[in-house]
């Protein structure tokens, strides 16, 4: 049980403590709210929700109305 064991045990207590504090802090700051809104991030006005992108193969059989650009 040298100094290194002391450091190991100490740090294995300290790290989770800091982690838990960070989680509590983040929750208090409201960082964990409205999480699922981020699911919309890949989409934008140009490539909006509900529109398939990357139609490359078998184009002739692709339903036409979904292909045309909205505007």
């Amino acid at each position: 049980m040298g100094i290194i064991s002391f450091i190991l045990i100490g740090s294995s207590l300290a790290f989770p403590a800091v982690a838990l504090y960070a989680l509590w802090w983040a929750g208090r700051e409201g960082q964990l709210r409205h999480h699922d809104k981020a699911a919309l991030l890949p989409f934008d006005q140009e490539e909006p929700l509900g529109q398939m992108t990357d139609v490359v193969l078998n184009r002739s059989s692709f339903p036409k109305q979904t292909l045309t650009n909205k505007a």
């Binding site: 790290f15 800091v18 982690a19 983040a26 960082q31």
Partner: peptide, 21 residues
Amino acid sequence: MNYGPLLFLGILFTLASSWFG
């Protein structure tokens, strides 16, 4: 929802755990 700091801490602590272990 800018939880960048939390993310960085989590990334470092998780690997630190197995680095110790």
